[in-house]
Simulated scan of single mutants.
Amino acid sequence: MVDSLTREQRHKVMSHIHSKDTKPEMLVRRMLFAEGYRYRLHAADLPGTPDLVFRRRRVAVFVNGCFWHSHSCPNGTHKPATNAEFWEAKRNRTVERDGQALTELANRGWTAVTVWECELRSLNAVADSLHRALGPPRL
């Protein structure tokens, strides 16, 4: 149980959480690749460093964890009991940064698609929304 961890143990657990190549991201990548889509990963030259980038189509895909990006689902609205002020500020900064990145991408003429971790329970719905944004895969 997380509440029974010492400060050092919690720090070690949290330090192993990475922002790239997460399970939800890998699921989306495998799905799109199997359907024939080809993409670039983690384009640092674009605002927000999108997880998947389709340059010719000018589409950027973000695969967001619900908790970290304060999604409106139960996982995203969960408020940690310990160090609550820190987490509130951190998650608010993330939401603000996400909004700025989406605005900047739109200003550059890009379409941004956000796939939420909780949406991956219905892969068909995620695939449909990505197909609408991407169009057919190239042969």
Rank of each mutant, 00 (worst) to 15 (best):
H131D: 02
A125C: 08
P47W: 05
A125R: 07
N124T: 13
G76A: 07
W87G: 01
L46P: 02
A81H: 03
E117I: 01
A125M: 08
G36V: 07
D21N: 15
L139Q: 12
F62L: 10
V53M: 06
H42D: 05
R55F: 01
W87Y: 03
W116E: 09
C118W: 14
M14Y: 15
A101N: 02
R38E: 12
G36H: 06
H16S: 15
L134A: 06
S129R: 15
P47Y: 03
R57K: 15
A43W: 01
F62W: 09
R57E: 05
A84Y: 08
D21K: 14
A112F: 11
R7T: 10
A60W: 01
R40S: 12
D51F: 02
P136F: 05
S129C: 06
T111K: 07
A112G: 03
A133F: 13
E88W: 14
V113T: 01
A89R: 09
R108L: 15
R97T: 01
R58T: 00
R30W: 02
P80Q: 00
C73F: 09
S122P: 04
E117A: 00
W68L: 01
R57T: 04
R56W: 04
P50H: 05
R132E: 11
L5Q: 10
R30K: 15
N75K: 15
A60G: 11
V53T: 14
R29N: 06
S72W: 06
A106P: 08
H42S: 06
N107G: 14
P136E: 13
V113E: 04
F33E: 01
R40H: 03
T103V: 02
E35C: 12
E117V: 04
H131Y: 07
K12M: 09
E8T: 09
N64M: 11
E25P: 13
V61N: 05
P50S: 02
V2K: 05
S19W: 13
A101T: 01
L123R: 13
H16C: 13
K20S: 13
F86L: 08
N124Q: 13
R56F: 00
E104C: 08
R10H: 08
R132P: 05
S19T: 13
K79G: 03
N64E: 08
N75S: 04
L46I: 04
V61K: 00
L139R: 09
N92A: 14
N75L: 09
L130C: 05
P74Q: 05
T111P: 12
E8W: 01
